[in-house]
Simulated assay, not measured.
Amino acid sequence: MPFLTTDDGTEIFYKDWGNPDGQPIIFSHGWPLSGDAWDVEMKLAADNGFRAIAHDRRGHGRSTPTWSGNDMDTYAADLAALVRDLNLENIILVGHSTGGGEVVRYAARYGRGRVAKIATVGAVPPIMVRSDTNPEGTPIEVFDSIRDGVLADRSQFFRDLSAQFFGTNRPGSTVSQGQRDQFWRLGMQAGFAAVHDCVKAFSETDFSADLAALDVPVLIAQGDDDQIVPIADAAYKSIELVKDGTLKVYPGAPHGIAGSYQRALDKDLLAFWLS
């Protein structure tokens, strides 16, 4: 299996599908998942002539269960190392949730001249936590409760969280138990310290300057019934900060990508990649 070893000795696992000479698309996953969360979209990309790459963020999936470096600056640096190692150019970035923050920070700090387009889906930018400068944000107590849930009974917490993640607590949901089980399975593969520490990374990192620095087309996609990352404090704010952005809102769609939402999103992603 392919791994990249970073300067601090962390092994980053990645998958590399499709045409090795095709335009590369890098997929960055959400918390607490792994690159496997993007399998459907990776196949879509590979089937359409692209080179599809998805890594497991440090501390997640098959990558080293790191004790340190579970922060957005390090995540972006790890992604930069992967790009350098594979010698990638003309890159399309796709990030869901925490991964949306990762690709935005990477693009702003390392991507000039390498990144062609960016798509974020239910992404955490600009900043989630409530503060004096972000009064519409989510109270810190919500993120404290996530950390408490992880510490008390991570397995049951992930099983319960999958309902909000996929919106199965809403009338008419068609998300299967298998998809909820997959969320639990991928979450339980992640390292304990990374799962806990990444909550601070995705909730308290301010990506406002990163969004403003982007100089390539950006697709910002999100469901308007996202119970994990509220759209009013995410996509609706992010679109105001980017220079060349397109906003796609999916009525009634949850945070997790599945079912009819996934089919609609994938159609829009493919059109964006090919444009």
Rank of each mutant, 00 (worst) to 15 (best):
Q177Y: 04
L211M: 12
A190F: 04
D181Y: 08
A201I: 09
D206F: 08
A209Y: 02
L214R: 00
S173C: 01
Q189F: 00
V218Y: 06
A209K: 07
V175T: 13
L186T: 01
F207W: 14
F183Y: 15
P171K: 11
G167P: 07
K200V: 15
P171I: 00
F192P: 00
A201W: 02
F183G: 07
V216M: 13
L186K: 03
P171C: 07
E204T: 15
W184Y: 15
M188P: 09
M188K: 09
Q189A: 15
S176V: 02
R170L: 11
S173Q: 05
T205M: 02
D210H: 02
S203M: 04
P171G: 04
Q179Y: 04
N169V: 00
R185S: 09
A212F: 09
G172M: 01
R170D: 10
D206H: 06
S176R: 08
V218N: 05
A213D: 09
V175Y: 08
M188F: 12
V195A: 13
G178S: 12
T174P: 05
D197T: 03
R170C: 00
P171E: 12
Q177L: 07
N169P: 08
R180Q: 15
L186A: 00
S203Y: 03
G172D: 00
Q179A: 11
S203L: 09
Q182C: 04
R180F: 03
M188G: 11
D215M: 02
S208C: 10
D181C: 11
V216D: 12
H196C: 02
D210M: 05
G167S: 05
Q177E: 15
G178R: 08
P171V: 01
T168W: 08
R180P: 12
V199K: 05
D197L: 14
D181F: 11
A213P: 01
A190P: 05
V199R: 09
M188H: 12
S176M: 03
K200H: 13
D215Y: 00
D210W: 01
G172N: 03
Q182I: 09
C198R: 06
R185D: 12
V218D: 06
G178E: 14
K200S: 15
G167E: 02
D206E: 10
S208M: 08
A213G: 06
V175P: 11
F192R: 11
V218P: 08
Q177C: 00
A193Q: 12
L186W: 09
L186Y: 06
L211P: 03
V199F: 07
D206M: 08
Q189G: 13
N169Q: 06
A212E: 15
F192M: 04
F202L: 15
K200F: 14
F183S: 10
Q182H: 11
A212R: 14
Q179C: 01
R170Q: 15
W184R: 06
S173W: 01
L211S: 06
A212S: 13
